[in-house]
Amino acid sequence: MTVASAKKDLGSPLPVKRRKGFDKQGKLAFWLLLPACVAVFGVIIYPMFRTLIVSLFQVNSALASVTPFVGLGNYLTVLSNSDFWASIGRTLYFTLVSTALELILGLIVAGLLNANLKWRWLFRTIVVIPWAIPTIVNAAMWKGIFNAQYGALNALLTQLGIIQNYQAWLADPTLALNMVILADVWKTVPLVAFFLLAGLTAIPPELYEAAKLDRASWPRIFRSIVLPMLVPSISIVLVLRTVEAFKVFDIIYAMTRGGPVNGTATVAYYAYETAFSDQNFGVGSAISYIITIFILVLSAVYLRLLRRSDLSLL
């Protein structure tokens, strides 16, 4: 059975005579899925529910005994707070720029990975390396590279004569955010490239051959064959990266801790600070729910734009 036919089967109503088999399969499916459901939903659903409750109360201490019910008050507090919106703005910037860069560079690298290279195996091995570097190590590494006094970037640019004086790359809020994006992009492009490569290899070679016979130019082939065939991979990468970028926390925590001037305080970092540093658990919980809503909306928008109904592809 091919993927396409499986999809069709799902959509069509099941014949009545298979009803019994369906029940039997349902039972088996129940037992097969039980461990996964327990392991995932058990760990997530109850805490999410707790957090939802907390978000409706004023909770100012980890040990709070007096916790007045405030309804949607915490949500209103958050939504009327300019710091929150500033952090959303930064997060959107981070998300859009990093995802866009990752996608463009990822396409190029995927093309190279797919190209007829000498030592292709070596090239693939090298490209996979940044992906495997743990985020915290990546953050520490780039923090060292961007160091204002002895970092490699300053040394390189000065010795090449591109800049005269050592720069404090992380001292300006906008610049710092871009530098964090750079570090994130470096680590993530290989991941994106491999995803897109998987899509590229699925394109039947006959299509290229046909295009070549038509003497189509490369940009044309790219636009009319490669891109449409890649839409599924691109949409997955877009959704995955958007979700990840919108939740970004660890690289911020390790590289800049939100500074300078909150310039790199993304919304997940803001939520963390609010909940744990300020002990405003009610408001912190509300923020994390708002983040969830943002992510769902963004994903829905992407999927709609890419004309795909869901992520599962089943």
Binding site: V43, P47, M48, T51, V243, S288, I291
Partner: peptide, 19 residues
């Protein structure tokens, strides 16, 4: 159920920390 599984990926971890 499948969509539900995939949706958990979209939840921020921070929302589950204290519980």
């Amino acid at each position: 159920i499948l969509v539900l599984f995939l949706a958990t990926y979209m939840l921020p971890q921070i929302a589950t920390l204290i519980p």
